[in-house]
């Protein structure tokens, strides 16, 4: 057999789900129910633009600007919009502030509601049955698996997200960060710390 031609005589067949998605996309665009340009814009946004760096900006601002923190407490969605960050679906964001008395943690027991505009697409563990079922039932155990051990006296409050209300945890500002500017502070704010399964990092 001569081997001077391609090993694959035809194009590589996509997976079954990939073909099913392609079929839906074909049908819906043909019928004018979705606009291919709108699809591209959504992909661009969620693959490249949004992510936890945006939530971290909100937290860093809240730590450094008491007026912003006050505005966030009053109407989180409006305060966040002043930073140029807003949801596509008009969802309501509620910032929940960690204190020495209360640690906040977020879950969606129904499916996977999540503050997309602030944190992007949720990680796999957030979407797993294990986390969704256990976060409410045994939050301290779940936190321990994330390496978070809270002081005895600190309560854990678990917030169940919905399609209408998404929560953003404002972690406690780490000690020894008085001299840092907002960009330096934002670098200490991990995705998990804004879901409540982590704490803000210590400065290097």
């Amino acid at each position: 057999m001569p081997h001077d031609h391609h090993d694959h005589p035809h194009s590589l067949l996509p997976s079954d789900p990939a073909l099913r998605v392609k079929a839906l996309e074909t049908i819906l665009t043909r019928k004018g129910l979705v606009d291919p340009a709108a699809l591209d814009a959504i992909l661009e946004t969620y693959e490249k633009k949004v992510g936890p760096h945006l939530g971290a900006r909100v937290v860093a601002r809240a730590w450094s600007d008491p007026a912003f923190m006050a505005a966030l407490r009053q109407d989180s969605t409006a305060a966040i919009a002043t930073l140029g960050i807003s949801g596509r679906q008009g969802e309501h964001v509620v910032a929940v502030e960690n204190t020495p008395e209360t640690h906040n943690m977020v879950v969606c027991t129904l499916c996977s509601c999540y503050p997309w505009p602030l944190l992007g697409i949720p990680p796999a563990w957030y979407k797993s049955d294990a986390y969704r079922a256990r976060a409410v039932r045994e939050p301290r155990k779940v936190l321990a698996e994330f390496g978070v051990t809270l002081p005895e006296g600190q309560k854990v409050r678990v917030w169940d997200s919905t399609a209408e209300v998404r929560y953003l945890v404002i972690p406690m500002r780490p000690e020894g960060t008085e001299g840092l500017d907002e960009a330096q502070l934002a670098a200490l704010v991990s995705r998990d710390s804004m879901i409540g399964t982590g704490l803000a990092g210590a400065p290097a």
């Binding site: 996509p14 997976s15 789900p17 990939a18 998605v21 392609k22 839906l24 996309e25 819906l28 979705v34 699809l39 959504i42 992909l43 946004t45 969620y46 693959e47 490249k48 633009k49 949004v50 992510g51 760096h53 945006l54 930073l83 140029g84 960050i85 807003s86 596509r88 505009p117 992007g120 697409i121 990680p123």
Partner: peptide, 25 residues
């Protein structure tokens, strides 16, 4: 929505069809 680009980190989708499906929905 701001115009800045997310820092490269974990990819939000494991496979392209998941991203397409998400966008379609």
């Amino acid at each position: 929505m701001t115009t800045e680009t997310a820092p490269t980190g974990t990819a939000p989708f494991d496979e392209p069809w998941q991203a397409q499906l998400f966008a379609l929905t």
